[in-house]
Nucleic acid binder design. Structure first.
Lengths: 340, 340
DNA sequence: TTGTACGCGTTATCAT
DNA sequence: ATGATAACGCGTACAA
């Protein structure tokens, strides 16, 4: 007891060589069916379990994929993680999960740990400003970046057209006659924050209106920021008649404070939410994100690249690939023409 | 290029032995400061990254923890995963995530993969009926089970007092004068389903009332089941005045169909939700679960046991440990006295 | 069809 | 203070 069965053990017990046992278990064609059967039986009764680390060392590559995200509690990232985990499982890979909370130090530490584990590839939603070392580490293997986009990270990007998403959402409200439209979004140190704000602005410009910058609040993509931001907006002399959110957690924060204040949607204020948390299926007009599609697309892309990279010596001359998915505006009961 | 720096490379470059380099990098006391400095500098410029698989093989144990859950999109499991990931990170471990969707075949396959990776321990929310092989695999290392409890899995359990949770929730409604209280819960093949139903029943018994079994619907813990179940309940001649949910996804399903039917909460029906998804902070009376606490407690327990197991040869004679956490009923605006 | 032998990158033991 | 060497479990080129 206290000892795990190895090929050597099986070989000794069966009076065979290690290589024969190894070949039998990997169904090598040149091993007799009879031997295979004997070996498999012995492996089964002894509870033999292959040692993937040893195998990886020998082969020179592991079956590990590293996923680096800010927060798996966030519905969106949860969906991302699930999609990728299923991709991995299907392809015989396992997923190592790292949660950064957007802290660059934690990010570096965990990316280093993933590197030490010799993951075959990285899927990363990078923090706003990763440490220099992090880039170096991520460059050691195939890598794709999701949603947020960092040019320093010379890695293929998968995400949505943020500008179009916010432009459409804001345009919808403008079409309903709203003018005092507030925007609670992420700060501009994230590519997503920049794109979304631009989309918000473009909607006004397209309508020949001036952008109500005094109704814009940008900050960390957290619920409490959004709650505070909306409170301050509502305290202004010119209250907004509608609010657009620029992130899932920001949306949650706005909804929370609306509830606390007892404001009715859309009677007191129209709301466009962000993301697809199942609970606001009930009534929330929302910017719907194809999280699962992004996960699958990027996962399959990465896995393909990993396999390719093993054949061709080095296909490092990869063009900067990008896959732009489309969000869609899902109309529900949380928006209404102004003054109704 | 195409070659990862190893200790051997560093040794050759510095004209030192491999052992000296290894010792220098692990800050061995008997290496001169000067040598350490030289080695560290060389390691840094060459971008040396340790190889944890090789280390694990040599040492006989990895720094991997396997987490097996049905679904990480579920808020509750998301919180669990996050808590555990942080536990792991803090202790120098990494977390391998497996999503089973409660499919025993997928579960077995993934648990096997984790076994092959020689995870140092398992944290598992088991499917209702795991394959026999799965038990064998999980028995190969330290293991804790969460929430759901399987006796065949002789592993310490961390969860909540399900009976008390539902008793309290149901009692609250009874106290508000409700009698036709519906219950939409998980089927009885899960320990959670059994405990929750019993709690529902106990509330009636404690009040000297008979249990309204015709208002009880049990099934798979999925949103669509709950939606259908509530629809059928509402179609009955004796419509319920209140509904208690026995799971997070079931709660989401009930809320969804309520929205579709245009029913007002609590005017048309009182609702007790399940779990802590941030979005129903607004107005939902809910059975609140200490997901993060459970994750931390079980994670620390497992990590401690892993460390202990390395000192003492085999401390297999472990008593069946259980940590019962308490849920709490959070009162909000979704329940009201009957007939108001 | 099966066996022998080497190396993957580390760490630990024993020597110097 | 440093070096040589064995071993962890596996896969494969080469030999038989």
């Amino acid at each position: 007891m206290g000892h795990e069965t190895t090929l050597k053990d099986l070989a000794r017990a069966l009076d065979l060589s290690i290589s024969t046992v190894a070949r039998a278990l990997s169904d090598h064609p040149q091993i007799s069916e009879q031997t295979k059967a004997r070996v498999r039986a012995a492996a089964s009764v002894s509870g033999y379990v292959a040692h993937s680390a040893a195998r990886a060392m020998r082969r020179g590559h592991s079956t590990l994929i590293g996923l680096i995200i800010p927060d798996v509690e966030n519905e969106f990232y949860g969906t991302l993680a699930k999609g990728l985990a299923q991709c991995c499982d299907q392809a015989g890979f396992q997923m190592l999960l790292a949660i950064t909370e957007d802290d660059p130090v934690s990010e570096e530490r965990q990316v280093r740990a993933l590197s030490e584990a010799r993951v075959a590839g990285f899927v990363v939603v990078p923090s706003p400003k990763p440490l220099r070392a992090t880039f170096g580490l991520l460059a050691r293997g195939p890598c794709v970046q999701l949603i947020r986009r960092l040019d320093e990270l010379a890695a293929p990007w998968f995400g949505i057209d943020e500008e179009a998403a916010l432009r459409e959402a804001t345009g919808h409200l403008l079409g309903q006659g709203h003018r005092r439209i507030a925007y609670v979004g992420g700060s501009l140190d994230l590519s997503t924050g920049r794109g979304r704000l631009r989309g918000f602005e473009q909607a006004f410009e397209a309508a020949g209106l001036s952008v109500p910058h005094h109704l814009v609040r940008l900050g960390r993509p957290r619920r409490d920021f959004a709650s505070d931001a909306f409170s301050s907006l509502w305290g202004q002399p010119e209250q907004p008649t509608a609010v657009v959110t620029g992130g899932a957690r920001l949306c949650a924060g706005v909804l929370e404070v609306l509830g606390r204040m007892g404001l009715k949607i859309p009677a007191d204020i129209s709301v466009v939410g962000f993301g697809d948390a199942p609970w606001w299926y009930t009534a929330l007009t929302t910017i719907s994100l194809p999280a699962r599609e992004i996960a699958i697309a990027s996962g399959e892309f990465l896995l393909r690249r990993i396999r390719d990279g093993r054949r061709e010596a080095d296909s490092q001359n990869t063009p900067v690939y990008q896959a732009i998915h489309r969000s869609s505006l899902v109309l529900r009961a949380s928006t209404a023409p102004v003054g109704t």
